[in-house]
């Protein structure tokens, strides 16, 4: 169990590093897909099956295809070496490492109980008791209004994309 955690956590983190390190945007995009697959596996390990599948379908499937499509449409070349100046890398790495140090300090010193084992899920599983059932029931009862609003948001986004990407009429 914990072996698979380390495997997929390494996959997610190494994929994430690849996004930043590789100069070719297409390679970066494929690294991000690897990272998202590792992340989806971590979701599934947290017993969030629906969310894990959504991560693969929506992120690795739809969103990354859109990214790669746009990269190839715009025909972007590799970034030149000179564009990665030393101070840039230093500053970025400093902020990243600083943030990671902050997270580590908070997790070690907080005393909230982050180091306790995850509780057992005794009720989950069986017919009519999957997480899809629970989430679906919540979506169409307690969260009926937000889901309507999300529908409106998607409509607005679709119209907005059409307006943004058409050629300007002179």
């Amino acid at each position: 169990m914990i072996f698979f955690f380390y495997l997929f956590a390494a996959l997610a983190v190494i994929g994430g590093l690849g996004v930043v390190v590789y100069k070719n945007p297409v390679t970066s995009a494929f690294s991000l897909i690897v990272s998202f697959l590792g992340l989806a596996a971590l979701f599934i390990q947290l017993d969030a099956y629906l969310v894990g599948i959504l991560q693969i379908l929506v992120y690795a499937g739809a969103i990354m295809v859109l990214f790669i499509f746009i990269i190839m449409l715009l025909d972007i070349d590799r970034e030149e070496n000179k564009r990665f100046s030393g101070e840039n890398i230093f500053g970025g790495a400093l902020v990243g490492i600083g943030f990671l140090a902050l997270v580590t300090v908070v997790l070690l010193k907080s005393g909230v109980g982050f180091e306790q084992a995850l509780p057992e899920l005794t009720e989950l599983g069986g017919k009519g008791n999957s997480d899809v059932h629970h989430i679906g029931r919540l979506l169409f009862s307690k969260y009926w209004f937000p889901i309507q609003m999300v529908g409106v948001l998607l409509l607005v986004a679709t119209v907005g994309v059409v307006v943004l990407s058409r050629k300007q009429l002179k």
Binding site: M1, I2, F5, A9, A12, V13, G16, L17, V19, V20, S35, L39, L42, Q45, L46, G92, A93, V95, G96, I97, F99, L100, V103, T104, L107, F114, E115, Q116, A117, L118
Partner: peptide, 19 residues
């Protein structure tokens, strides 16, 4: 597995993205 494990991965990914 503890909550900490996942929070470290989450923090690492966020830091990489920020950098």
């Amino acid at each position: 597995l503890t909550l900490q494990h996942f929070l470290y991965v989450s923090g690492a990914l966020f830091a990489i993205g920020l950098a």
